[in-house]
Design a protein around this nucleic acid. Structure first.
Lengths: 334, 334
DNA sequence: GCACAGGAAGTAAACGTTTACGTAAAATGA
DNA sequence: TCATTTTACGTAAACGTTTACTTCCTGTGC
């Protein structure tokens, strides 16, 4: 395989000159540039990024940690990040942590060894161990679709509490009073708790009594959680007219289960979801949901990362606006 | 940041010894091992994979090229590959080619510069340029969910023609005669043409006349393609009782459009899809479809890749069995 | 004609590892 | 006990770049 030395020898220049030419560093004439470029072409030479990385301490690579949540959400995030990263000449290594602490630590070690320029951590609680490891080595870090309460780390996310509040208020506006909630994991401080709080707040603010039994907690935010959760919820409250689901997948699970139980959506019970994943508009009835601009947010996170890396910038966390996407899963009560 | 030199100095040994210990290379006593490990711990030393990669010519990294097809399929593939790769201590760099030839070549250059140990190319036609570039540098290559007719490259995929044949024969078995097809891109030699051929073959074999107008070609395999395709198809043949869609997303698009047109699935028209993506069982009606064991296939591809890299093995292409997943989108005609 | 600025190019060190080779001491065998 | 093998470890080169420092040359101003 041709190296910079081969090019230098064949072109009768020093390797420094070749390097300068490749990096546009001034100190050569147009004539030698042409000559060198020609022999590069002839030899089919490609610079070795590993060698370059060794000396420049830059690998042009970032790591992205994703948990085992909705594969669609994850896919959107990775795509968004990868797009802007690639634009800037940097690659992304994906790491599926499966929400497993041990595996996550393993990945962090790996990424550190690989000398990634930065890490984007998504959709999960940033544990102390993670944070300490990352900051000990001064690796730039940004959080996507999550945030840290204990540590100061730039993040990109929507205001979950507020989004949830709006969703429920929307239902109330449509005439619903008896509203249930399909929540994710109770212990999730990011997407769990805040959404429940928003739910309660919306009810209270609008003078609807809050009953704990109207909230059904799931293991996670999956289709399965939504389906089984709804069954239990409905058993307790067969008179509810609407449900707010903490994720679109849960909403889909609920719709499916309702269908099987002979309950029609939205005629008998309305539902609004959360996330606006691609399929939410593909299903029947098309899902009314809270949209997170995931692609945009991901791109933002990537850009923040790049700024931290290249400009050593002190980036700010940014809250993204959610919005309600009205489709067909909510019925207006007279 | 601590390097191997720091460790060596602090532990009073040579760097060679530290290296040997870290790589289990024999040539040290248990005593010195303990001593060295202790100072590694104290210094918080982590080996630098870049330096290691430079000399060992191994980066423990592979590149995965994915096109802009169903984000769910892509997600499953990447997950499958990443899982087994990580198991073996290698990372994966994802590259979204967006089915863009120029961008793909860019990525190939990038991956070569980054000295990846191998490349997994998915779901797309392997162009001559791609192949030549990759093979010129002797980069191990495996194809996932695609294959090459002109070049000999190990691949993992299902037999599209056969799968398609089975799908259509299934419909015939359910009493359907007037069957339309929603195909993807006509020019796609991998997932386009073969599936159409399977469709025709099944009809012929079962004594049903084949009409070209029963086939509607799309731009790709998307939801949109399915929706608009069905509308045109139905305009030509309002008497069809079943449709075979070349992808689940297309099938979903069709169902949605049918719903809007006041046509009920499966009562008036049945449909079978292709892929068995996660949401196909979440929708209403749940989709009857041809399942490709994507996760399994992806894992297989990754394992093949690792074998090529580590054992220099001469791996064999493997065809994976598809199967029909019967759900609720097909009605039996008496 | 000379001092000197400035540009083009070369030299060599450095980045953090792995590893072939060398060496001294310990273990083995007779 | 001595010769020989084995073991534990050190030395230094190599991997393919970037870059600080140097050198050489051309041109400029006086």
């Amino acid at each position: 395989m041709a190296t910079i030395k081969d090019v230098a020898k064949k072109a009768n220049v020093s390797i420094a000159t070749v390097s300068r030419i490749l990096n546009n560093k001034e100190g050569f004439t147009e004539e030698t540039r042409k000559k060198v470029m020609k022999t590069i072409e002839e030899l089919g030479y490609h610079p070795n990024a590993v060698a370059r990385g060794l000396i420049s301490k830059r690998t042009n690579t970032i790591g992205v940690l994703v948990p085992r949540i909705s594969s669609m959400l994850v896919s959107d995030m990775v795509t968004g990040i990868e797009n802007v990263a690639h634009e800037a000449g940097t690659s992304v290594i994906v790491c599926h942590t499966e929400s497993n602490g041990q595996k996550t630590m393993q990945y962090l070690h790996l990424l550190k060894e690989k000398q990634v320029d930065g890490i984007i951590f998504t959709s999960e609680v940033l544990l102390k161990d993670y944070y300490e490891f990352i900051s000990r080595f001064n690796i730039p870090l940004v959080l996507l679709s999550t945030e840290s309460i204990n540590f100061q780390v730039p993040s990109v996310k929507v205001d979950d509490r507020l989004a949830s509040y709006d969703a429920v208020e929307y239902l109330i506006g449509m005439g619903h009073r008896k509203i249930g909630m399909l929540s994710g994991n109770k212990k999730d401080m990011i997407a769990g708790m805040p959404r429940v709080e928003g739910f309660k707040m919306a009810l209270e603010t609008n003078g609807v009594e809050v009953e704990e039994s109207l909230i059904e907690y799931g293991r996670g935010f999956s289709y399965e959680d939504g389906a089984s959760g709804f069954e239990r919820l409905f058993k307790r409250h067969s008179d509810l007219t609407a449900v707010f689901a903490a994720s679109d997948e849960m909403a889909l699970g609920m719709i499916s289960k309702a269908h099987r139980m002979g309950i029609s959506v939205p005629e008998q019970v309305s539902v609004v979801g959360f996330d606006n994943i691609a399929v939410s508009e593909m299903c029947i009835p098309a899902l009314t949901t809270i949209a997170q601009p995931v692609q945009e947010m991901s791109e933002r996170a990537a850009r923040m990362m790049l700024d931290m890396i290249n400009l050593n910038a002190n980036v700010q966390s940014s809250a993204y606006p959610h919005r309600i996407v009205e489709r067909e899963s909510v019925k207006r009560l007279k």
